[in-house]
């Protein structure tokens, strides 16, 4: 058992070190979401004048988005890393060791989770620096970090599944537009009750990303909202569980082939 934990620890460390050594993987997930939220908050500030808008600060409303966007990036980054392991034959080398397949996945997920946490701390500092205050207080900030790490791990496992199925970094990169669709066709810029276009409202309602954003957002602008939090954690756990099952199956297929 302790061997398995050692394997997981080593693989998680490798995952983190490898990502931190590639500025192209570290910097865009930090800069791009904060830039987007800054730009959107400036351009969409008049939205707060709409009747029924939940806050007077659009930045406070929108600051939940980087946490989710950063986690979505981890789908791509984690997947691309694993796909590269497959392309370079590193996975084959691991398969020749006594390592358990589950250790590979858990190590991978742990690495993504730690990176997700680092990203979230950066966004949190950014939020505080630009004057956003958390209605749920310090405890709320910790819950945000926990939720964001969980979301990163869940999407990271989704990336792992795609990598194991396709074995191609390019295919993973091609998921980028789809991640954007999920992000933008959500309650990212407008509360769902204020979306006037019917089809968009339906799409945002069935889009799980809306609930992830609303969970984080509730801690910032509302305080402790049990329903929003429960929905956010439930959605994150559901995505994570499905991804773990799919990744485990795909890993079995991949190892059987190699």
């Amino acid at each position: 058992m302790s061997d398995t934990w050692t394997q997981i620890g080593n693989l998680a460390r490798r995952s983190i070190v490898r990502t931190l050594r590639q500025p192209a993987y570290v910097i865009p997930p930090l800069i791009f979401p904060t830039l987007l939220v800054t730009v959107n908050a400036a351009g969409l500030r008049p939205s707060t004048l709409l009747h029924g808008f939940p806050t007077h600060s659009f930045l406070a409303f929108a600051i939940a988005v980087p946490f989710i966007q950063g986690a979505l990036f981890s789908t791509m980054n984690a997947g691309t890393d694993l796909a590269r392991d497959i392309q370079t034959g590193f996975l084959n080398r691991l398969a020749l060791t006594p390592m358990r397949g589950s250790a590979l996945l858990v190590g991978h997920m742990a690495g993504v989770m730690v990176l997700g946490l680092i990203q979230s701390i950066f966004y949190l500092c950014f939020a505080l620096a630009v004057g956003v205050r958390f209605s749920a207080g310090v405890g709320g900030a910790f819950v945000i970090l926990a939720l964001a790490s969980l979301i990163a791990a869940s999407f990271g496992m989704l990336g792992a599944f795609l990598a194991l199925r396709t074995g191609s970094g390019e295919a993973i990169q091609a998921t980028f537009p789809f991640l954007f669709v999920f992000l933008f066709i959500s309650s990212m810029n407008t509360p769902r009750n204020l979306i006037a276009v019917h089809w968009f409202k339906i799409a945002a309602t069935i889009n799980p990303v809306s609930y992830l954003i609303e969970g984080v957002r509730s801690l910032i602008i509302t305080g402790w909202d049990g329903q929003a939090l429960a929905l956010a954690f439930a959605v994150a756990l559901a995505i994570g569980s499905i991804s773990v099952v799919l990744s485990t199956w795909a890993l079995g297929q991949r190892m059987a082939r190699t």
Partner: peptide, 28 residues
């Protein structure tokens, strides 16, 4: 496909996302 998707999909997607999701702004 990797080049077609961003070329064609992004503009449509932004059109839908902005025109659909932000239409309430016209009531400002």
């Amino acid at each position: 496909p990797n080049l077609v998707i961003p070329t064609l999909a992004f503009p449509f997607f932004f059109f839908l996302a902005f025109a659909g999701g932000l239409s309430q702004l016209s009531h400002l």
